[in-house]
Design a protein around this nucleic acid. Sequence first.
DNA 1: TGAATGATGCGCT
DNA 2: GCGCATCATTCAT
Length: 200
Amino acid sequence: MDLLKTLPRSFYDRSTLDVARDLIGKRLCCHLHDNFLSARIVETEAYIGREDEACHAATGRTNRNQVMFGPPGYTYVYFIYGMYHCLNVVTEREGFPAAVLIRAAEPREGFGLTNEAGMISRALSGPGKLCREFGLTLEHNGLSLTGSKLFVADANEIPRAVSRSARVGLSKGNDKQWRFFDADSQTVSKGPSYERDLPK
DNA sequence: TGAATGATGCGCT
DNA sequence: GCGCATCATTCAT
């Protein structure tokens, strides 16, 4: 059994880009429901402050985004497109709104590891699918990541290389290379070819 | 292999 | 009312 060492709040109290990069390879763990679930994070995106046009906090503090303005190491979960939820982890000092979106992971415990064809499961490949499979909804917004219900652990699965690209699905902020992913992962939401779509 | 599209509901102007 | 940090399906190339 892997040694799971929960990341301390200080891990999140850093530059959001550093946190986003360093989360690649870490283990997302969930004790919220009947079964223990865990998965290896392979793709993240950073959303940083009022100056980032794509950040939900760009237009100021609202009821929805207020947790981003709070202390680091808490969840920010939001509802999107009428049917999906997305999981973020809040970063940086209290008062500075920033977070990292968890976009994809590779199943480890409590999930099927492969599909019918024997390939590594892509059931967690995408932020909406990941939340659905972990059973995360708005009721899990603002949850501390240093507790025992939902946390990120260092499972000593260091990626060989972390690539970066523009963020996915935005109409603004496409100039920033704030998406990070495990260069060797088969379960990222979009392939490395996404890099070729970058504006120069 | 990629582009277009519909589903579906909330937050914010 | 419009747009959205998505996804599965359908259709074109």
